[in-house]
């Protein structure tokens, strides 16, 4: 690092001479750098950080937003049964969806990695399709597959001699359905991340393990998993954030129904805040996503810092 700064210091005279006609302030390196990053800082400050802080303020106002009511909105929420149902459903939804995405992604990544190299591209190409289609559009296809009277799944089940399933009509099946669609959308992302990680494990490690007589399970447990630990953790954290904050799948598939049983924080906040015109209460609900975000952010930050010191 030092040597490059010195080299740059030696290299700068010709540039400096040319720029000497400009005011010294405008030609300073830090000023140019600030100018280049200023739009970024402004847009993030005005449209991300300010609204995020504003949400905390909004949550303390009355419904008509003319009075400061302190924590009354939170108090109101805590007394409502629907709120606790939403908390429970959000946690179940996020945790089980991420778990299945990770398992399926891991399994599929291994399978792709196992087949001969010339076929891998083709398989990978087909398996990433659910991730590429905008979720609002693909969820419409699922909605149609789950249709109460024309469900194509029920047609198959009935022709196999079973009984049709009320996919979105029954609370438990509806919860299963939103998780299933979320896993469908997200598993390919895990697959692609794990595949990249698998490719980066040095082949010599497996050869060494094979010479030591390790079976496939021991290779997986003692070689693959430790080498992939970082990627697995980061991908799961990312996915946990995104899944916890999910809106489109639940909104399109069930819109929270039947009777609010499948609402997650985002869809319920939308219903209360935008559709119900109670902006403070909606802000209040969406704030409950902050703790999980903060925890995940701390872990991710730690990982970034560690990588920064390794480099």
């Amino acid at each position: 690092m030092r040597s490059t700064t010195e080299a740059r210091a030696q290299a700068s005279p010709p540039v400096r001479r040319r720029a000497a006609r400009l005011p010294a302030f405008a030609s300073r390196k830090s000023t140019i750098a600030l100018g280049m990053t200023l739009p970024l800082i402004l847009i993030i400050g005005v449209l991300v950080l300010y609204p995020a802080g504003y949400a905390f303020y909004l949550a303390l106002l009355s419904k008509s937003m003319d009075r400061f009511v302190g924590l009354a909105n939170f108090d109101f929420l805590f007394r409502r049964e629907t709120f606790w149902m939403v908390v429970k459903q959000s946690v179940i939804f996020a945790v089980s969806a991420v778990l299945f995405k990770a398992l399926i992604g891991f399994l599929v990544a291994h399978c792709v990695h196992n087949v001969p190299a010339r076929g891998q591209r083709k398989w990978r190409g087909m398996l990433l399709v659910p991730w590429v289609i905008p979720p609002a559009m693909s969820t419409l296809a699922w909605l149609w597959l789950f249709d109460p009277s024309y469900s194509a799944f029920n047609w198959l089940i009935q022709h196999a001699g079973g009984e049709g399933v009320p996919w979105l009509g029954d609370p438990y099946w509806a919860r299963f359905a939103v998780i299933l669609v979320n896993v469908w959308v997200g598993a390919p992302f895990f697959m692609i991340m794990y595949l990249a990680a698998l490719k980066s494990v040095p082949e010599q490690l497996y050869e060494a393990a094979a010479i030591d007589g390790a079976n496939w399970w021991q290779k997986l447990w003692y070689v693959t998993l430790p080498m992939m630990r970082n990627i697995i953790a980061i991908t799961a954290l990312f996915s946990l954030i995104v899944t916890f904050a999910n809106f489109d799948i639940v909104r399109v598939l069930t819109n929270g129904g039947p009777v609010d049983q499948t609402h997650v924080f985002a869809t319920w906040a939308f219903k209360l805040g935008i559709e119900g015109n109670d902006i403070p209460l909606g802000a209040c609900v969406s704030l409950f996503m902050v703790p999980i975000l903060a925890i995940a952010a701390i872990f991710i930050l730690r990982d970034i810092n560690r990588r920064g010191t390794e480099a």
Partner: peptide, 27 residues
């Protein structure tokens, strides 16, 4: 502050749209 800013930019990526749409609507 460039290193801090780089990390900060990445952290804002973690703030989801579902947290911001209500305050933005009000703004």
């Amino acid at each position: 502050g460039s290193a801090t800013l780089a990390t900060g930019v990445f952290l804002t990526y973690l703030i989801p749209d579902t947290l911001l749409f209500i305050p933005l609507f009000k703004i």
